[in-house]
Amino acid sequence: MRLVADNVSVARGGHIFFSGISFSLEAGEALVVSGPNGVGKSTFLRVLAGLLPDAEGSVRLEDAGFETAAEGAHYLGHRNGMKSELTVRENLEFWRSFMGEAGGDQTKVSAGVIEAVAMVGLDGLDHLPFGYLSAGQKRRIAMARLLTAYRPLWILDEPTAALDVQSQEMFSGIVAGHLKTGGLVVAATHHSLGLKNTRNLILNPDSQAAMSSHDPFASQEPA
C-alpha cells in the first residue's frame, strides 16, 4: 500500500498556497506537515481528504482496495465532528455505521464503541452527552472515532490540541499502533507527536514546500 501525491498545487480564493508537492508514503510511514500559522497546512490536509479540490496534480492511495484516497481515509480536523446533544455512544455508533460499509482490507479488525472509548482512557463515560465533556475529553472521543471503523489512511489536523501531556502520549501510542499494522498517517502539527519512521513536509509562506528528513521539532522541549 502506498499514498502518492504527484505535483499537487493548492489554491483557494485565487491565492496559491503552494505548488509542486510530490511524495510517496509506504505502509507504516507517517508524514508530519509543519509550518507557520496561515501557511496552508489545513488546506493541504483537506485536499488529501477530498474535501477541497486540488488546483493541479493528483493524490492516490495504491493497493489498498479503495477507489480514491478520500474513501480510504479518516479525517480528524480542528472540529471534533460530534453532536453535542447525542451521547458519546450514540455519536460513535453513528460514525461506526457511517464509515463501516467500505472496501479495503477486511482482515483489519475495528474496535467496538465501548472498547474504543476505553482505549482513549474514558471508559464509563459513553452514556454522557458529548456536550458535557471537557475540551480534552471531547478530543479524545473524536480520536476514538478513528478506531471504530478501519481506514488505512489517517489525516490529522492538530490532533493533540486541548490534550494534556498524558493524553498526548496516549494518542502517540494509538497512532504508533496504527503505523505498526501497516497504516499511513499524515498529520499537521506545531508539536512533536513522538512518532518514529516519519517524513517531514515543511510549508513556507513564500508558496514553497520542501520534503525534509530533519525533525522540525527536534530542538523543542517535550510538550
Rank of each mutant, 00 (worst) to 15 (best):
L125D: 08
L156N: 12
L153Y: 10
S172L: 05
D157E: 03
Q137C: 07
D123E: 14
S167F: 02
A161E: 14
H178R: 09
M170A: 12
G131P: 13
A176D: 05
G121H: 11
G136L: 06
D157L: 07
S134W: 14
V117P: 02
R145L: 10
L125K: 13
F130E: 03
T148S: 04
G121I: 02
A176F: 01
S134R: 13
L125Q: 11
L156R: 11
P129V: 10
D157W: 07
Q137K: 11
A142M: 11
G112E: 00
A135V: 11
M143H: 10
T148P: 00
V175H: 05
H178M: 01
A162G: 05
D126Y: 00
L147I: 04
L125M: 15
L156T: 13
A144M: 03
L128Q: 15
R151A: 12
Q166R: 15
A162F: 15
P159N: 11
F171M: 14
G124L: 10
Q168A: 08
G124V: 02
M170P: 06
L125Y: 10
R139A: 00
L122E: 03
I174Y: 01
Q137S: 10
G173H: 09
I174P: 00
R140I: 04
H127R: 09
A162Q: 15
F171A: 08
P159E: 11
A161M: 15
L146P: 02
F130L: 12
G173T: 10
A135Y: 07
L133S: 10
V113A: 02
A149H: 08
G177T: 06
A135R: 14
L163M: 15
A162L: 05
S110I: 02
H127G: 15
V175F: 05
L147V: 03
L128R: 15
G112Q: 09
D123F: 03
A149M: 10
I174C: 05
L146H: 01
D123R: 09
E115Y: 04
